[in-house]
Design a binder for these strands. Structure first.
Lengths: 199, 199
DNA sequence: CCTACCGATCGGTAGG
DNA sequence: CCTACCGATCGGTAGG
């Protein structure tokens, strides 16, 4: 007789995401994880190599999602304002789709070993750089106000990456409302009040 | 002969702030803390009751600072826009003044026991409510655009409370620049483009 | 996937 | 502030 659960490994990953999010990586024991899965602690190691590999899988899986979504947008024919709005929307969609995993991605990545850590930081820097590039081309085209792109993009990510802290999936706030609020708080703030045409 | 260090307890607190920030509360051992202080692990307990009390002291000391700064502002005669700007500036000043402690305040509070945790959450909710009140009175007076105050204030805190993640005290960015960037990204975004007078 | 177990490390105490 | 130490818990392995 086969197991009722189609994929035990997938179940372990999902439960790890939830525990790492709610308790934190360091405060989550493999024994606690085993209990939520319903097997003995030692049995976990038939499916996963180590606790840290669980963390790495979460972080790099989410990094992949972010990167691929942005790649698709960058291939579209859009002006900087449209492109930035699309990038923001895509980023938020991924957060809402994977609330546990993205929270771990944002807060627990630092517990990876240094090799993974360096790879992770590079991916994240590249991703942020692409957002900065959109902002900078918009400033050049005078669609956006002059601002320090580094600070401005950090503030944008701060808003988007805080969603998991206050968003209630069972509340009445929809994805569309969140995207709108962030576009309003951020984009309207950096948009010129009277858009100019090629100076 | 007295100790060279004026206050060993203060030194322990400061070192705990730094370790809790950089390694995380759960990943910081009392042995590691003792080593940075230069005493044996057991000797820590002559100065502090427990590891958790160290965390509580950090969290409630910072909560006090935030609350008192805001109280002073609320007693001034200011319109909602000036009041919100002053509250933002005061909040940022405290973050920059206590980078280690505020980072612990933002990320490690969840490891307090449930009695402290409840007290802490209440203080934080009261503080956020006061920001919401300012925003709401500004919306009533039509100084600010209509927005969902709850989401909007969460986004504001997200920006302010992310500073520790990207601010480099040795860089050329000054407190004034950070305050300006956040006011620009946030306040300009919610300000009416053409301010109305009592409809 | 289980039983049985290992060495390491943890927060904290006793007693001086 | 130190030496000596405790019980608990940790991530992980051996062997089936």
């Amino acid at each position: 007789m086969k197991s009722i659960l189609p994929d035990r490994k997938e179940q372990i990953n999902k439960n790890a995401q939830n525990l790492f999010r709610t308790k934190g990586y360091k405060a989550t024991s493999m024994r606690a994880l085993a209990k939520t899965v319903g097997i003995e602690p030692a049995s976990l190691y038939s499916h996963v190599a180590s606790k840290e590999v669980l963390l790495q899988n979460i972080c790099f899986q989410i990094a992949d999602e972010f990167i691929h979504a942005l790649k698709n947008i960058s291939e579209e024919k859009l002006n900087p304002k449209e492109k930035l709005a699309a990038a923001i929307q895509a980023h938020i969609r991924i957060i809402l789709k994977h609330l546990d995993a993205t929270t771990v991605f944002f807060h627990e990545w630092k517990y990876m070993n240094s090799a993974s850590l360096n790879r992770f930081k590079n991916l994240r820097n590249d991703y942020e750089q692409k957002f900065r590039n959109i902002l900078e081309s918009g400033i050049e085209e005078q669609i956006f106000q002059k601002t320090d792109p580094h600070t401005s993009i950090k503030l944008l990510f701060a808003m988007m990456n805080s969603i998991h802290e206050w968003y209630n999936p069972k509340g009445k706030l929809k994805q569309k409302d969140i995207v709108e609020s962030i576009l309003k708080s951020y984009l309207n703030g950096i948009l010129e009040k009277q858009p100019k045409q090629n100076q």
